[in-house]
């Protein structure tokens, strides 16, 4: 079955900027994790901690926004944000 996307809401540019920074940071940490090893103890420890913290902030943003805007949801679906338009999309597999 083809994936469908439906616009279910919009966030403010400030809210978009917050999640975009977290998104970029999470991607950066994930790619850094591919090259950092435990040999570099100091940085590795910082990275592990940071990944956990960024992940929490990321989830916290979605929880806060979902609570604030009460977007439509569906079983098996997930929300996505369009960084260009600030739109929230409901994605159904």
């Amino acid at each position: 079955m083809a994936m469908t996307k439906k616009t279910v809401g919009q966030v403010t540019p400030e809210e978009r900027a917050e999640i975009q920074t977290l998104f970029e940071r999470r991607n950066g940490l994930n790619e850094l994790a591919k090259i950092l090893t435990a040999d570099n103890a100091e940085l590795y420890e910082k990275l592990v901690k940071d990944m956990g913290e960024t992940g929490r902030k990321f989830q916290n943003w979605w929880d806060r926004m979902a609570e604030k805007y009460k977007w439509e949801s569906a079983e098996g679906g997930n929300w996505e944000i369009n960084f260009d338009t600030c739109e929230i999309l409901l994605v159904l597999a």
């Binding site: 920074t21 970029e24 950066g28 790619e31 850094l32 090259i35 940085l43 910082k46 990275l47």
Partner: peptide
């Protein structure tokens, strides 16, 4: 690899957008 590691190690603001 060096750029990524150094941006992170220095807490450089570009680590969040490169």
């Amino acid at each position: 690899d060096y750029i990524k590691t150094e941006m992170y190690r220095r807490n450089h603001h570009w680590f969040n957008s490169y």
